[in-house]
Amino acid sequence: MRCGDFKESYLEDEKIFQTLFVKFWLVLLAAGLILLPAIANEYILYVANLIGIAIIGAVGLNLLTGCTGQISLGHAAFVGVGGYTTAVLITKVGMPFWFAMPMGGLASAAVGLVIGIPSLRVKGLYLCIATLAAQFILEWIFVHWEAVTHGIRGINVPPPQLGSMVFDTERSFYYITLLLVVVGVGFARNILRTKWGRAFVAIRDRDLAAEMMGINLFRYKLAAFAVSSFYAGIAGGLWVSFIKVVTPEHFPFSLSIEYLAMIIVGGLGSILGSIFGAIFMVVVPEMLNVIASASRDLFPTMGKHFIPMKEVVFGTLIVLFLVFEPHGLAEIWHRIKNFFTLWPFSY
């Protein structure tokens, strides 16, 4: 019977897969995720794809905001840059999706670098406003640079292709999303264990102290912006190829807020938190939709009042989280895990 983990070195403490149990459950999870398309219907897979895309975006934002402490209100615009770059490269240059999407990530990272420059001078609320400006400037470009973005009409994006295989259904696209989520989450988890990750955290905790320890603020703050925007760009490229169309309406300011909410609900500075947050923010509205539709059949006259209530329910859930669980879903998960690790002799 297990009664806790005993570690003898820091190296062991930094291990990602710490125990046999963790490995066992992860293998089970991986098997479950791979087999999901065999049992789930198109709608579930559609939601699964959305969750995957949200996870990639949220992990990126968490690296910047949760780990490095640089609040960004322009994340949706970075997602947009990636989405548009991918769409334009596919449709105008004829580049295959497999190259266009990483290029979208790089383009977004480049824009992120530029937007990140004010972070060297301004902090906190002031940086918030600087990134907010970026959101509106980029949104304006999406609408008005008609020669490239086709303005408000947007661009239709063909589905990815590999040889004769076309990834045009939720089922086939799911595997692309899954692969990228695994790679993206793995990379983010690892970056936190390196010199870079520690530099990020040091900057978040006290940037002056970090600088005195020899951390180059210029380099690491911009690096955080670039990495975060790269994730956003990948999420954007994936998203537009999945829904097969890109218009400026896809990247509103509210999406930036939604991403922030994801990492706050999930847990700031935690990769696992980003995943939980993304799942939460995608699944809860969908669930409320389903409940709203179902309740309409049971109480036909109630429908008119219940459907608009969805936003209220959603908002209340978020407030409850902030009040009762400020460390987010990741913290709940840790508590549950710890409880079961020592169960039934928890004392």
Binding site: L50, E170, E249, N289, V290, A292
Partner: peptide
């Protein structure tokens, strides 16, 4: 009938839900 909220992502999800179900 399902509510799409005049938001493209919500509407697309509702569309797919109806088609699947």
């Amino acid at each position: 009938m399902e509510d799409g909220q005049y938001k493209l992502d919500v509407a697309t999800a509702a569309f797919k839900r109806i088609m699947t179900r």
